[in-house]
């Protein structure tokens, strides 16, 4: 197990370096200059040249990149071109909001997804199965930003049950969590259903039933346990997706998370912040995947990572 984890960690290094390189190439290929952008309407060539020099943007590109890489390896991501804050500090300030949004959406998604998925697999091909699955599919099919604004309109403005936007308490997280969570609830519900169906057909369930165990015990004790593995995988993968995919939700609801930070940084061409956020989100994604993979071995003793390729 340990050697597997070490191997995985080592294999991350080229991926992360590749990500910084691609980001670096992209930000330098994309038109738009951070300094010109900062200037606004009044533009003065001398001022631009001066600020470029002060920010080190007049150095050769490969030196800029190597400089970034060497500093990043030591945890120094530089300072924002705009508000001059330390990028690492900025990211750590913003990360909790994104985590909070992701976790609350996950709670919503898991709760709805599992309930719907289990019931509709047990009551396969009934009206409940069909109708909940159609609703679940509609959940996947509606754009998150659209659901978000409709929730704002109904529960925020008309009914005044929850705040329309903001980040000042758990009640602020309800609408964003539902907007973002329903989409993943649908995915989880479908995965749970199909995984349950597959398991229910297997021999050991038949054996359990034959042994005269009650249907409840069969479903919850035996079937669910075995059906959970692919579901956990999906959940794990979604967490990675949630952490990086909440940009629009954060924008519509005004949550000060990483997604908004990265969009702003791109719009401003704030190079250090772009590099920092992309690297950080990639790191989070890669680590969640690792954790998901490791957790398999606990869930399913048949999976061992020590021998050969995983």
């Amino acid at each position: 197990m340990t050697s597997y984890i070490i191997r995985r960690l080592i294999s991350m290094i080229p991926v992360l370096i590749g990500i910084t390189l691609i980001t670096f190439i992209l930000i330098n290929v994309v038109p738009g200059d951070p300094v010109v952008n900062m200037m606004g309407k009044r533009v003065d060539a001398q001022t631009i040249a001066n600020i470029r020099h002060q920010l080190g943007l007049d150095r050769p590109l490969y030196i800029q990149y190597l400089d970034f890489l060497l500093k990043a390896a030591r945890g120094n991501l530089g300072r924002s071109f705009y508000n001059h804050q330390d990028v690492m500090k900025t990211i750590l300030q913003r990360f909790p909001a994104t985590v909070k949004l992701s976790l609350s959406s996950m709670v919503v998604a898991i709760f709805i997804g599992l309930t719907v998925g289990i019931i509709s697999s047990v009551k396969q091909y009934t009206f409940f199965d069909h109708s909940t699955m159609i609703i679940a599919l509609m959940g996947i099919s509606a754009p998150v930003f659209w659901v978000a604004i409709i929730l704002q309109l109904i529960f925020g403005l008309k009914l005044k049950w929850f705040p329309i936007s903001g980040y000042s308490g758990i009640e602020c997280m309800v609408l964003p969590a539902i907007a973002l969570g329903t989409r993943f609830a649908a995915t989880i519900a479908r995965m749970t259903r199909s995984s349950m169906l597959e398991v229910i057909r297997q021999d050991f369930i038949r054996t359990a039933r034959a042994k005269g165990l009650s249907e409840r015990v069969v479903i919850y004790k035996h079937a669910l346990k075995n059906a959970m593995i692919p579901v956990i995988t999906i959940i794990g993968l979604q967490v990675g997706g949630l952490l990086t995919g909440s940009i629009l939700t954060e924008t519509v609801f005004g949550i000060p998370g990483l997604g908004r930070l990265s969009i702003e940084a791109i719009n401003n061409r704030d190079f250090p912040v772009i590099q920092g956020t992309v690297l950080f989100t990639a790191l989070v994604f890669v680590f969640t995947n690792l954790i998901v993979d490791i957790s398999y071995s606990f869930l399913d003793p048949r999976i061992r990572y020590d021998g050969g390729e995983g």
Binding site: V99, K100, Y167, I170, K221, K225
Partner: peptide, 26 residues
């Protein structure tokens, strides 16, 4: 993992989230 354990995990997550919510609340 039993359904009960799973429920427990979900509950713990809920608590964590709500605590986080209170922490930032001002």
């Amino acid at each position: 993992m039993s359904a009960k354990k799973f429920l427990a995990v979900v509950l713990i997550m809920l608590v964590v989230v709500s605590l986080a919510g209170c922490g930032g609340g001002q």
